[in-house]
Lab assay of single mutants.
Amino acid sequence: TRVETATETAWISLVTALHLVLGLNAVLGLLLLRWQFPAHYRRLRHALW
């Protein structure tokens, strides 16, 4: 059971790390998009709101 718990903890930390990386990538991607295409982003925002 100790090995199972260790594997579980490893999986949880792995999934958490993946989520963090994906979240960071999403934020960075959005920031890059805003920086690269400000006009396009503004138009998109007007369409959404």
Rank of each mutant, 00 (worst) to 15 (best):
R43D: 02
T16K: 01
A6K: 11
A10E: 15
V3H: 04
H19G: 15
T16R: 06
R43T: 13
V27N: 07
E4K: 08
V27Y: 10
G29S: 13
V15E: 08
L30A: 12
I12C: 03
I12M: 10
R42Y: 12
A26I: 14
R42D: 11
T5Y: 08
S13A: 15
A39F: 11
V27G: 10
A39Q: 12
A17D: 07
R34M: 11
E8F: 02
L18D: 00
H46Q: 14
L28P: 04
T1E: 11
L28S: 04
R42P: 01
W49T: 00
L31D: 03
I12L: 09
L24G: 06
Q36M: 14
A10D: 06
A39P: 02
L33Y: 09
A26N: 00
V3R: 01
E8P: 09
R2A: 13
R45T: 09
L18H: 06
V3Q: 11
A47L: 13
T9S: 12
T7N: 11
T5F: 08
V15Q: 03
L48W: 00
T16Y: 08
W35M: 15
L22K: 01
L31Y: 09
R34Y: 10
Y41F: 15
A26T: 08
T5H: 01
A47C: 07
L14W: 07
W11S: 05
L14A: 08
A39L: 12
Y41K: 03
V27F: 11
S13G: 14
G29N: 08
H40A: 13
V21S: 14
V3N: 05
L33M: 12
A17H: 00
L14F: 05
V15N: 03
A6I: 04
P38C: 06
L14H: 08
V21T: 14
W35F: 14
F37I: 06
V21C: 15
H40Q: 12
N25G: 09
L48Q: 10
S13I: 14
A17M: 09
L28K: 07
L48S: 02
L20S: 05
T1I: 13
A39T: 12
L44A: 08
G29I: 15
Y41A: 13
A6V: 07
L14D: 00
T5S: 07
R42A: 13
R42G: 11
L31M: 14
P38W: 02
L44C: 06
V21Q: 02
L20C: 11
W49R: 02
V27S: 04
E8M: 05
L48T: 03
P38E: 08
R34I: 05
N25I: 03
G23Q: 05
Y41N: 05
W35K: 15
Q36P: 05
A39M: 12
L48I: 13
R45V: 10
L30F: 13
R34N: 05
L32Y: 11
L30Q: 05
R42K: 11
W49Y: 01
I12E: 09
L18F: 12
L20G: 02
A10S: 10
P38L: 09
A6W: 01
H40N: 02
H46E: 12
V15G: 01
V15I: 12
A6Q: 10
R43S: 08
V15S: 05
Y41G: 02
H19A: 15
G29W: 15
T16W: 03
W49M: 00
E4R: 09
I12Y: 10
V27Q: 02
T9F: 10
L48D: 00
T7I: 11
A47R: 12
A6T: 04
E4Y: 12
R45G: 06
V3P: 06
H19F: 13
N25V: 04
A26Q: 07
N25Q: 07
A10Y: 03
L48P: 04
H19C: 15
N25W: 04
W49S: 02
F37K: 00
L24T: 07
R42W: 04
T7W: 13
A39R: 14
L28M: 13
R2M: 15
A47D: 00
T7L: 08
V21P: 00
W11K: 00
R43K: 13
V3T: 08
P38N: 13
E4Q: 13
P38T: 06
A10I: 07
H19W: 15
F37A: 02
N25S: 10
L24W: 07
R2S: 13
L33V: 07
W49A: 02
E8K: 05
V27W: 02
L18V: 08
L31W: 11
L44N: 02
A47H: 03
P38V: 07
L31Q: 04
P38I: 13
Q36F: 02
E8R: 04
R45K: 14
R34W: 09
G23I: 14
P38H: 10
L22Y: 08
Y41I: 10
N25A: 03
R2F: 12
V15C: 02
H40K: 01
L22C: 14
L14S: 02
L30C: 13
T9W: 14
Q36C: 11
H40D: 00
A47G: 00
V21E: 10
A6E: 07
R42N: 12
T5I: 06
R42E: 13
L20K: 03
L33S: 02
V15A: 08
L44E: 00
L31C: 15
L48F: 11
T9D: 08
L22I: 14
W11L: 06
R2Y: 12
G29E: 02
R45H: 00
V15M: 15
Y41W: 15
L18W: 01
A26W: 10
L28H: 10
G29T: 15
R42H: 11
Y41P: 03
F37P: 04
T9R: 09
H19R: 10
T16I: 10
N25L: 04
L32H: 01
L28G: 07
L48H: 00
V21R: 01
A6M: 06
R42L: 10
A26V: 14
F37E: 05
I12V: 13
L28Y: 09
H19I: 15
L18I: 02
H40W: 13
A10W: 12
R34C: 06
L22N: 01
R45F: 01
W35D: 04
I12G: 03
Y41T: 10
G23P: 00
T5Q: 09
R45M: 09
V3A: 02
L20A: 11
R45W: 06
S13W: 14
L28E: 01
E8T: 02
L20F: 13
V15W: 01
T7E: 07
H40M: 12
S13T: 14
N25H: 07
R42F: 07
L22S: 07
G23K: 01
W35C: 11
L20E: 01
W35L: 15
A10C: 03
G23F: 13
W11D: 03
T5C: 08
L18K: 01
T1A: 11
S13K: 02
L14E: 00
W35I: 15
T5P: 05
N25T: 05
L14M: 14
E8I: 02
T1N: 03
E8N: 04
L33F: 12
P38S: 08
P38Y: 10
L14V: 05
L24D: 07
